[in-house]
Write a protein that binds this DNA or RNA. Structure first.
Lengths: 207, 207
DNA sequence: TGTACATCAGTGAACGCGCGTTCACTGATGTAC
DNA sequence: TGTACATCAGTGAACGCGCGTTCACTGATGTAC
């Protein structure tokens, strides 16, 4: 890669990081301004246009990035489960670590799932759907391996993702002590869901 | 009530309705401006201050209102369940009707649950917690009546609310056909949760 | 009931501010020969 | 390797705009007597 292209890439990165760093509990993407992001990134407002047509385009790039982190999360969880077993506990643990490392990316994902623009929502929906689909396959595989197959794997996965992501959002504004409680609650909720899904499958042929 | 107070009340109402009417799939509360709301309500921007100190105060009034509608929803669902039985089906049906009648209030609740300001989030959290608590009691009571008691009623209620509200958000941007499918999925998910909660309770003494 | 005064919801002009966007530019980097 | 030209990321001035907020005001409604 040539020096010029490298520099451009760096600036683009700086813009994305600047936007990300402004996202916090109290500031959604909609409240960012182009000038503010450029200022934070250390360039003139006009230079922004060398990289994105508008703020929303930058936002979509961030959503892409968030999707990548989700896929990493999934891979990591799989690896750990293969090693430790205890799918629910391990997944919850891995997810909470992910949250800490990707606080603002996760905020973006969760918050803008409802909001801002159609394009945003569609992009985020796609990332989350992809995540749910992968989870569904894992659930199915794990259930069959343990001879406790589950019914409606996709719906179970979606419900799990919904619960985990929403509790995750709460966890972001929690004290460490509350976080422990929240994790335990999360485990209980996921186990109940799994239990119900297994039972529903067992009873299905009988009905 | 005197004429002057009546008139003031009417204008206040107009301001709240104006704000509400601007909320839609693409516009969150954060994107509203005081001038815009005043314009929509048919008064001068400066008159806004006769009713609220700032936009956020108006928003909190809307959250209060949303809380009231949630309590109405709960009462209606109870009445219908007492008449029809079939708690899950009836609840889902009642909730979907509620959604149609309170589209923007619900959007506000769900969207600003994560976002805008600490005060906003706290107020919404309180409304939703209250709703969950009532649901938990109902679940417990119904479970005991049917001699199928459930474990962790509060956590089950919270998981249900999370799932229902999030699917509800999706339902807002759905075609009628997709809505039917969504309702069916919702029923399945809630039933699995209930099933798991009942089984968890049954197995508890044995462990 | 009539009069004199108080209240206060709503007003319009004015302010300073940060915004997004345009434009013609600069000067370092890259390329062709 | 040296030279002449092309590219293009980053710039600074300037624009018009809608914003939130202040202020002194108006005039209808309400109250005291």
């Amino acid at each position: 890669m040539t020096t010029r292209a490298e520099q451009k890439q760096k600036t683009r990165r700086a813009l994305m990081d600047a936007a990300l760093s402004q996202l916090s509990a109290d500031r959604g993407f909609a409240s960012l301004s182009l000038r503010e992001v450029a200022r934070e990134a250390g360039i003139a407002p006009t230079s922004f246009y060398r990289h994105f047509h508008e703020l929303e385009e930058l936002g979509l790039a961030l959503v892409d990035e968030a999707g990548v982190t989700l896929r990493q999360l999934m891979r990591q969880a799989r690896k750990r489960i293969a090693k430790n077993g205890s799918a629910v506990n391990t997944s919850v643990e891995t997810f909470m670590e992910y949250l800490q490392d990707n606080e603002n990316l996760f905020r973006l994902l969760l918050r803008e799932k409802t909001g801002v623009s159609q394009q945003f929502r569609t992009a985020i929906r796609a990332e989350i759907d992809h995540f749910s689909a992968e989870l569904a396959e894992d659930l199915k595989r794990l259930g069959d391996e343990k001879s406790r197959p589950i019914s409606n794997a996709r719906l179970v996965a979606e419900a799990m993702v919904t619960i985990v992501f929403n509790q995750g959002a709460d966890a972001l504004d929690c004290s460490p002590k509350e976080k422990l409680e929240l994790k335990e609650n999360l485990r209980i909720q996921l186990r109940m869901l799994l239990l119900g899904a297994e039972l529903a499958e067992k009873n299905k042929p009988a009905e």
